[in-house]
Amino acid sequence: MIALLARDLRLAVRAGGGFGLGLAFFLIVTVLVPFGVGPETELLARIAPGILWIGALLACLLSLDRILALDWEDGSLDLLATAPLPLEALVSLKALAHWITTGLPLVLVAPALGVLLSLPAEGYLWILVSLALGTPALSVIGTFGAALTVGIKRGGLLLSLLVLPLYVPTLIFGAEAARRGAEGFSTATPLALLAGITFGTIALLPFASAAVLRINLR
């Protein structure tokens, strides 16, 4: 099991796209927003938590179609399906690898990008906490979408269409926690709900992902 995780991480580092692309995209989104809404510090400070969350979500979305499609194309997915590793574990590991290569770096750079958006001082901790708690759910849900569309040629756009509505609750609770934190209110409730969604999806969604992958492999 560790072998699969290690391989995916190594591939992400070697191919370059894993760490770099998502982060660069996140940076660009954050830079573009002030061009769109104007440079007033006050406005930027107010929308900063939401922008960071949406930027992280879109950056996550960008790399979803690589989770399973590459293994599908070169035949490894067939071979992995016949290996002594249940598909449920396979999709969980794939999601974990995606989180480590995409979600985790986004979490770590988010406070730095917060500076660009004049995020209030109280907000830094909470953007970090809410993203750290919420991005695993984005990876797990995204893996489900990737498993659904793995057999479809040029399924990238369809993948976005399927996954984005599923991201709504995570985004709402995550951004709400970050916003409340930045405004100095209590973040306990949205964080608890966000944790509920994250742990719920981690526990249950791999079964659905494995089921659709099995259907797609047949």
Binding site: P165, V168, P169, I172, E176, T189, L193, I197
Partner: peptide
């Protein structure tokens, strides 16, 4: 399931 979650999330939001 996610539609239901979204419904409650939206109420909360």
């Amino acid at each position: 399931v996610f539609a239901l979650l979204s419904r409650y999330a939206v109420l909360f939001w």
